[in-house]
Every structure is written in C-alpha cells, then in structure tokens.
C-alpha cells in the first residue's frame, strides 16, 4: 500500500504499537485530536514516523514534524512524503 493511502486509523494503530495506548479523549474530535492530548510526545511521533517510513518505504519531511499538532496534520505530512 502506498503512503498516500495511510489513514488516521492506520496512524492510530502505529502510535499504539510503538508508543502505547492513547489517553482517552472525546471520540467526536476524531482526526482533529491533538497528539499531545492523546499523550503522544515528540518521541512517540518520531517512533511512529520511523515505523511508517520502514513499512511504506518513504521518507517523511522531518522539518514538518514539529508543526504537526493533530493526527490529521501528521497524516497529511505522511501522504505528501
């Protein structure tokens, strides 16, 4: 599967795998949930991105990582890799 098809759910799964289960947040927030609210810090994001890069054979733009605050931001970044 190409990285362009990575979904928010795929990302959630990878985050849970490499960085553990998220903090509970209001489900209605969905893809706009903030990584910080989910309990994922910059190291968790690095771990998830590293796994996605390995699994999909892509290189995610590291410069963009600090500004990716929400799940949807990170998915956008991955899709444009």
């Amino acid at each position: 599967m190409p990285a362009q098809q990575v979904t928010v759910d795929d990302l959630r799964q990878v985050l849970a795998e490499v960085a553990g289960a998220p903090n509970p947040v209001d489900a209605s927030i969905g893809a706009d949930a903030a990584l910080e609210d989910l309990g994922y810090d910059s190291i968790a994001v690095l771990a998830a991105v590293a796994k996605i890069e390995r699994d999909y054979g892509v290189k995610v733009d590291e410069e963009g990582l600090p500004t990716a605050k929400r799940l949807s931001d990170l998915v956008q970044l991955i899709k444009s890799a």
Partner: peptide, 8 residues
C-alpha cells in the same frame, strides 16, 4: 503503570 509507558 499506564499502557503508554510500556513501550518506553
């Protein structure tokens, strides 16, 4: 401990 601490 919380699940999020397990992988780290």
């Amino acid at each position: 401990i919380p699940g999020r601490l397990i992988p780290q």
